[in-house]
Design a binder for these strands. Structure first.
Length: 198
DNA sequence: CGTCCGATGAACT
DNA sequence: GTTCATCGGACGT
């Protein structure tokens, strides 16, 4: 396994990275131990033209400022007051864009994930949604702005590069975004059991 | 299987 | 005061 570099994130566009991250492994080295999971579903958000992006029209606020940093940091925000949603910032500085990781498949630290999620009945409810997997892997807004090429958060690629079928569709939960809601900026692995919605 | 709705807090108007 | 990149429980088919 090889760790993705800062230039992977900062030198490539969010639409490429969103698709390319599928099948890769995300790691959170938490105080309780290591969490590892395979990325199976992502979405791309990109200012200035994307009305679903928090930084639409290059709106820079306390919340969105990390999206304007050079790619390679985490943008984590609280959604509906409860859920911690995790994004990877991509692209060059001042070019606000990020990949939302919507679903993962657990690989390591699974028992701790079950504890964190209060032992869901169906196994895929452990990590099949953007608020679920962050809760399982103990990722919260406390990590907002952290490097994702560091010791705590990182993403790894399997150098044997296994093939997988990718599906593309419109993004979820952004009906307010007018014409942008139909842009096909969601990507997921066709044969994963951990997709948030079909 | 589906739809409905409350939770809960930060950002924004 | 309203909105929101969600979730889980309640209830109907």
């Amino acid at each position: 396994m090889k760790k993705l570099s800062r230039s992977y994130f900062k030198d490539q566009d969010v639409l490429f990275v969103a698709k390319d991250l599928l099948g890769k492994t995300i790691r959170h080295q938490s105080p309780e131990g290591t969490y590892l999971a395979k990325i199976v579903e992502t979405e791309a958000y990109r200012a200035p033209e994307d009305k679903a992006c928090h930084a639409y029209n290059n709106l820079k606020t306390k919340r969105t400022e990390v999206m304007f940093l050079p790619g390679g940091v985490a943008y984590i925000y609280l959604c509906y007051g409860i859920h911690h949603l995790f994004n990877v910032v991509t692209g060059a500085e001042h070019n606000a864009q990020a990949v939302l990781i919507r679903a993962v498949e657990p690989l390591e630290g699974i028992h701790r994930m079950c504890v964190n999620r209060n032992f869901p009945k169906r196994k895929f409810d452990l990590t099949n949604g953007p608020g679920k997997w962050t809760q399982a892997m103990r990722i919260s807004t406390a990590l907002n702005g952290y490097s994702i090429v560091g010791d705590i958060l990182s993403i790894w690629e399997d150098e044997s590069n296994p093939t997988h079928e990718i599906e593309q569709s419109n993004r979820i939960g952004i009906d307010y975004a007018e014409e942008c809601r139909d842009w096909p900026w969601r990507f997921h692995l066709k044969h994963s059991n951990y997709i948030s919605r079909r």
